[in-house]
Simulated scan of single mutants.
Amino acid sequence: MLSTLTTSGFADTPATSASTTFTSIPVVDLSQAESPASKATFLAQLRYALVVVGFFYLKNTSMPKNVRDNFVQKSIQLSELPLEKKLKIDMVNSKHFLGYSQMGREKTARITDCREMFDFLTPLPAPGPEDPVYLNVQGPNQWPDEEDVPGFREAVETYLEEVGKLGDTMKVLVAEALDLPANAFARFFNTPARNKVSVLKYPVPSPAKPCSVANDEGYFQGVGAHKDGGFLTFLLQATEHAGLEAQNKLGDWIPVPPIADTYVVNVGRSLEALTGAVCTATTHRVNLHPQYFFDANKRSLGPRYSYPVFQTLKLDLTHEDLTSLRLPAHIQDLVKDDKIKSDAEAFFCRFHLQSPGQGIFTARLTSHPNVGRRWYPELTEQILKAQKEFNEGS
């Protein structure tokens, strides 16, 4: 954890004396931000987490326990429904990439991921026919039948509302940690902000029929190495499984195991773009190694359930908007000598720099090509071809 932070740079930390990389994920206590006596310490720790790590645990949030627990309970019920009921809200039926994505339908870096997923969005209107096509990453949700999971929609909407409040708090604190005015990021967001939750289920590995094959390092792809596209991601790891890993700037994979009553928060490409890469959008993945599905007493933990909420900027911001923020010189200097050995999915970088909507839309076409081919066939083939050529040439 950061001991002292000055305007000229970072002090020594347990992770590194040079402040260029990390070997563990810091824990930041949000309650410290509420007291003038401890707020400076909190902001120093947050700055280190944003700039050096790009990941941190956030504890003592305002999330009501009953709201969180109800959301988790209903989400597990949804994930455990028979396949035919889940397919009623198949993502392929939504031009907005919302609903259910069954096992084997999602790809990261052109490799199939091993998980099921449901996506639900803050209530936002669909774009009009004359609007840019990338705005179609927002629109109406597909909801399961009420009798299949009673109370599910209410649980999700209440949870998204509460995470939205946490996101509003963090927007201010991130600005203050970077020595910006408290409202510096407000103009880049809708009111309320666009938040999307993914209900994720990673299956127990089957030795007889694994859906993910180990590489030489013992890595089984749950979701492949990637960077999130938004401002901040608020991840609730709902079960005890290890497997989430973040890649430091030297290319090493650092475990991010669950810590009770915390959120894992990570920087997305939009915050990285707004800050001129001062804040780090860190590459991460989920490793489904069979050992992670057992506790210390060798008892099965069952499926891994995980629930990220992606806090997104206005979709139609331009490149000029994204590069209009001016950070203080001493903040920019914190990363001037950094060298990063990992940049997962570098193909998407230019799209995210064009606009948040363009970046997210492009990523959805490649990660859910079955949806893209139904609704945007020509664009999908163009993007998949460009991605293949980029990867083969890099």
Rank of each mutant, 00 (worst) to 15 (best):
S367M: 12
Y292N: 13
V264E: 00
A296M: 10
P132T: 13
K107C: 05
L160R: 11
A260E: 14
R269S: 08
A18G: 00
H226E: 00
S24F: 14
F118Q: 08
G151W: 13
G151D: 04
K336I: 07
L325C: 05
Q332T: 14
P144N: 07
T112N: 07
T191D: 14
K165P: 01
L244T: 02
D261L: 04
N297L: 12
Q291L: 06
P207Y: 01
I254D: 05
E84Y: 11
P132D: 01
G164S: 11
H289L: 03
G251S: 12
S367V: 06
Y159S: 10
N248R: 07
S206E: 13
S355T: 12
D148F: 09
D90T: 02
V309K: 03
G230V: 03
G276C: 07
Y263W: 12
A186S: 13
G359N: 10
A15C: 15
P369N: 12
D316L: 11
P205M: 00
T21E: 13
A18H: 11
Q358P: 02
R194M: 01
V309R: 08
V264D: 01
P255N: 00
F347L: 14
G372T: 10
S367E: 06
L384R: 08
V133C: 04
S324V: 14
K85T: 07
A49W: 02
L244Q: 01
T16D: 15
G230I: 04
A33D: 10
H284E: 05
K385H: 06
A225Q: 04
T13W: 06
V72P: 01
V67E: 04
T283V: 09
S38Y: 08
P144D: 09
S38N: 05
L46V: 08
Q354Y: 10
G151V: 10
R373M: 10
E130S: 15
F351E: 00
G139F: 06
F361S: 00
F120R: 14
S355Q: 11
V267F: 03
S38K: 07
F120L: 14
T41N: 13
Y305H: 14
N93Y: 15
N70R: 12
P132Y: 00
E240M: 04
P308E: 12
N391M: 08
R110D: 11
V27D: 00
L46N: 01
R153E: 14
R374S: 03
D261R: 06
